[in-house]
Amino acid sequence: MTPDEDVALVEALRRGDEKAFAALVDRYHSSLLRLAMSYVATREQAEDVVQETWLGVLNGIDRFEGRSSLKTWIFRILVNRAKTKGVRERRSVPFSSLEGDGDENQPSVDASRFQEGGRSAGAWSAPPESWEGIPEDRLLSGETRMVVEEAIALLPAMQRAVITLRDVRGFTAQEACDVLGLTEANQRVLLHRARSKVRARLEEYLSAEPAGVGG
């Protein structure tokens, strides 16, 4: 949304325009829920946090000044609520992990796939194969997306939060940093870790024969 659209929407909410509110909920609710899951232990708690977020949006709408986008502002309310709730319920995300997940120094690709010594150290020994031959409908099939969903679900909390905003929801790096309170460099490291793991999982999945083919 452009700043002008934000202003129009905020004015509609202040006027009590129910359709405008419904459209806003439609647009962001599911993404808010996904993000909340990075901070609290259960889906039920995440749903509570999102509910509180919407109430927070309404109660705070008169104070919204347009210094950030409406989207960023809403997601920041969510993160604040979720962190508070995470603390209160002594949740699983340990504090250190609200900045990073502790595995940022792991390689993106297993070291065994590169040559170890000599002149060619660091060159591929088992290079990845092109996916160009994979039909688009396999790459975008429900099963492939399920594999990706599962890989994302297994990511540590902050990596999951960053990849959700950047790649599922299309936030810019700056917007993700604003929402999550990360530095740009930290955000990029988390995103890179997250994408690398999902790619590795996809590579594993796609290199196996598709079900029902072969023989």
């Binding site: 990845p128 996916w131 975008l140 997306r145 990706v148 790649d167 999902v198 790619r199």
Partner: peptide, 19 residues
């Protein structure tokens, strides 16, 4: 090929259902 896989991965993630 790695870069292409990486790009495709990001594209698939972008197609996930937000619900």
């Amino acid at each position: 090929a790695y870069l292409e896989q990486f790009r495709s991965t990001v594209a698939v993630i972008g197609r996930l259902d937000v619900g």
